[in-house]
Structure formats: structure tokens, C-alpha cells
Design a protein around this nucleic acid. Sequence first.
RNA 1: GCACCCAUAGCUCAACUGGAUAGAGCAACGCACUUCUAAUGCGUAGGUUACAGGUUCAAGUCCUGUUGGGUGUGCCA
Length: 587
Amino acid sequence: MNISKLLTEKLLAALAEIGLEVPDPSRIQVKPADDLRYGDYQSTVAMMLAKPAGKNPRVIASELMEHLDVAALAEVSIAGPGFLNFTITSETWSVLAKKQWQDPNHSVQVVPKPETVVIDFSAPNVAKPMHIGHIRSTIIGECLGRIASRLGHKVIKDNHIGDWGTQFGMVTWAWKKEVNEEQLRIEPLQELLRLYRSATDACKEDESIKDACRQELVALQDGNPENLAIWNRCLELSRKGLDEIYTRLDVSFDHWLGESSYNDALALLVEKLKSQDLARESDGALCVFSDESGKPKNDPFKVNRDGEWQDYPMIVRKKDGAFNYATTDIATVVFRADEWKAEKVWYVVDFRQGGHFKQLFEVSRRFGYDQIDLVHVAFGTILGKDGKPLKTRAGDLPQLANVLNDAVKAAREVVGNKSHLNTEEEKDELAELIGVNSVKFTELSHHRMSDYVFDLDKMVALEGDTAPYLFYSYVRARSIFRKLEEGAVDTLDAKKLTITEPAEIHLVRMLTRFGDNVSVVLDDFRPNILATYLLELARSFHSFFEACPVLRAEGETRESRLILCDLTSRVIKDGLNLLGIQVPERM
RNA sequence: GCACCCAUAGCUCAACUGGAUAGAGCAACGCACUUCUAAUGCGUAGGUUACAGGUUCAAGUCCUGUUGGGUGUGCCA
């Protein structure tokens, strides 16, 4: 039981007793206090109800206080214009800490109604190495998947790779002309990238080559054996490279149903769209237009040009007969709903595709898929130090593998200077862990919609709001137990838990907020809430660790502090794992 | 032009969805290591939350407008 809910129930009971009418009981709650000077929890209920009741909020507050049956839990006081402040007693803190320590879930509550959630994330184009642009989707998606699973949902992580689009026409065109089998063996991803670039360069110079590339794509989609063979080899080679990166990032998928998986369904789908009058021909293409039901301003199928609202349809079949990503995306919704019985689909995709998703969701709804909850989990841009979208000197997006290597290199220097580890191998391993996870943690600690500057030095820095800071608090806590004999944790006795020092109380206060901070991430798809929470928890642990000797304390105090160290390290490890981050045992 | 997103300390970012005196980290300055890992802690300084109105007992948060930036805008994904 969560203390906030418990106090809310008590408050509702008190409201009923004094006979005050409550218009919307769901809005009555006792929340963690923003400012610890006013206690641990607070409620603004007296001020909310003052006006409708025609009473002074402080009067309501004091009536409530008289009828609040929380003496065993907290002290209550009235402050300011009518706040009810709850100060949790140290006995209650002890009980809460004990419960959480004994709970393998660390008081994370599963949802009452689990749902089937498909998470569509990462989705790189094959035949091109992953670049920095893929990091946000990949890391956020993995994190949301872990948290949703933990909260009891049935999660299906699907990597909807781009294995069927225009870029394949380009690669195939260049492959036929100039593939280097030697290079393909040595550095397959780089060779594929070279072919792709060669084709894009050629297209820029000669329009007819663009058409040739399109023809290669159409041939592939029609099942031309040579094109299919090339496609298969590209896929195989790319998959190897992608697996390597995903392993390094500790990201996994349940399915890899790329665009190609839906190819066979597209023709029939488009016929259905036509027969249901959802799609019609326009300029040779087959399009879905607005149903004219709403204001043009909010209509995803309208666009304003020179003061006039014009049609802006979703094209489901191009005039050359080929299907595009809109078509596959509709087919994908249908498949996920029909075959997987998905109740929710979360698309973790760059915000620039917002318009596309509005159209997709609307078409799905009109096509009869109106029960499934489709969400575009959008995110912003990663910037370089110049404040512009991150690019290499050559003007391309940096490859993800190179970025990770750079991060590990930077981490290695820091580790070399600071680490307590003995061997170079251990230090290399730690640098890999810190480097990769610093990139991940930086991503997850930002609000997903904000653009942020990619600054390697800051990510792996010695101090500050970083992954190493969290690692350090974990390692510090665990190091205590290495000083004890094996199995010392198992003999700890939580019956004797005493929490009295301010630093202890503050640590417990932070620990008890873990469950809520995990749940709230999914309210608006905000991993940064959990990341920020963990930093705050780590900070309160360091304060505790400086202020309260553990091994040198005696009796119940020593026992209690050992338990706090154990619990904190477990919660930090658990929380980081939910973000998708592994912790080191030593550093 | 129109639509979407963003604007908070010198810098990088928070603010539990409307609550009290807007918080952290970096950078700056001061203090604390023969003491459980100082990759740390404690302290000082730093703000008209872009601007102007409105709603509310209460606004960084909601609404309207303005300014500045990013993005999108018919066959790429």
C-alpha cells in the first residue's frame, strides 16, 4: 500500500464525516510535498472546496484535521491559505522501509488492467548503418518496453525496419553496377553505405538514374529473382551489423516485421480502401482524402496555401503503381490489431513525422480500427555543439557505432585516472559500460520533446547529473557489504529497523517514491521522470552516507543502516535496469 | 501563408500535470579526506519563467495575442 493513497483514503473518510460535498472525488488527493519544509505530503483539498462550500479554506482544513484518523501514520498541520501538511512519523518510515526492503518489486505496483501494447521503435533502414538519429527512438522505446512489462502489460517490441523502400532501389541499382565483393566480406555495412551514396550522388547528377532506381524497387516488389537475391543478401549483412549494435546497447526485440513483411497484404488492402470509398484516384495516385467532418485547421488531410485550404491526401499507391510507407503502415496497424490483438501501439518516432501519424491514425479509425489506441511518442532533435542538428564534417549524420566508440574512449580516460580497479581488462570493461550507458542515460534524462546538445565530455564526466554518478552511489553502497562476511545480508533483521536521523528519513522518503515514479513514466511517455528521480535518490544516499556511519555504528542503528544501503542499491539497480542500463559492481 | 513543437539562472536541464519562497548539475567562490570508494558531501552567489493580456482562491504550467527559433506542408521514410 502506497502512503499517498492511504492518506487520500483517510482524507476522503474525513470529508464524508464532516458532510462536505465533493464534486469530483478523483481530484481529491494527498501528494508528496514539493517543499520538505512543509512536511512530507500535502493536500490542497480545503482550498479547492472552499469556494463551492462558501467557507473559509482554513476553517475547512481545521474541521478536516479534527476528523482525520491518521495519528498512527503522520502528524497533520494547517499552513498558509489552507494547506493540510502531513509529516510522516519515524515509526511509519521504518515500517515503509521494511516493507519495501522485503518486497522483491521494491513497491512498484502492477496496473489493475494489463493491456497488450505494441511498441514500434528503432526501425532503422537496412542497407544503411544506424546513425545518431536512431539513438532516441531505440533507447526510449526499449525503456518504455521495460517499464510497461514491469507494470504488468503484455509488451510486444517490434522492429519495423525499413527493408522495402526507395533506398533499396538505390542500393540495388548501384549493386548491379559496381558491387565490390571483396569489401562486402571485410566491411559489409560500409560497402552497402558506399553503394547507397554512389546511387544518391548519381541521382543528383542525372534525373534518369532516379527513375532507374525506382524501377529497381518496382522490380523487387514484383518479385524479380535477381533483385530479390540482392535484397536477401543486403538484409542478411545488415542484420548482422544491427544485432551487434543492439547487443551493445542491451536492446532487444520480439519481432522484426519490417516493411517487406506486409508486401503481400498491400494490394488487397488498397482494394478494400477503394471499395469502402476511403480512397480514390487523383493525379494518377490512389489517395485518401478528408471526410470533411471537422475544421480544416484540425484536419490532417488539409493544408493551407496562399490563404486557401487545399486537399492534402494520404497517398496509398503512387502513380508508378508502387506502394509507399503509408500503405505499409496501415497494413501494419491491421496486422497488429487482428493478429496480436494489440490494444495500444506506441510509435517512438521523430516529431517531424507527426503529420504522417495524424493521417495514419485517422485512416485507421475510418477503416474500422477505432478501438485500438494509437500514439505517436514523438521526440526532438539531437544537436551538435554549434546548436544545429548533429552532423559530421562531411555533412552526414554520425554513425551510431562511431559515436559509441567515442564515448567509450572518453570514458576510458576518466576510468584510467580514477578507477580503483586493478587490471587493464577490468578498466576496459568498465569504460565500455560507462561510455555506452552514459549516452543512454543522457538521452533518457532529457524531456523527449526537447532538442539537446550531444556533448560526450559532459556525459562521461566525473561529476554532475550523469550515469557515472548513479553508478558510484550503487558501488559505494555495495562496497559496504564486501567488508562483511559472505551472506551478511541474509542475516539482517528488519524487525529492528530504526529510522531517526534526518538524512536517514530523507533517504527513506525518496525510496518510498520509487513505485510512483516508475508508473508515472507511462502517463506521458517520460523516462526522464524516472531518470531525474534516480539522481535525486542517489543524492540523498550520498548525503546519508556522509552523515551516517554504517559499519562503525552499533546495534539496531548499524543493522538499520545496512538495510538502507542494501535497499538503496537494489532500488538504484532496479530503476536503472528499467531505463535499460546495467550497473557495475566496482569502479 | 498555414499547421505542429519549443522558449525557465551565464551554460545544460528539472519542476510529480494548477499549489506555498521556481529546483538540480556545470562553470565561479569557500569548507570537509591518516575515517565504510572524495567519481563524494556541506555552504555562498546566480531568476520579472521571451513579452502582453485573460481564466482561477492559486499560473512556469490552462486560454488568447505578440516576438524569436525549430520542423512540416502531394507521390522520401
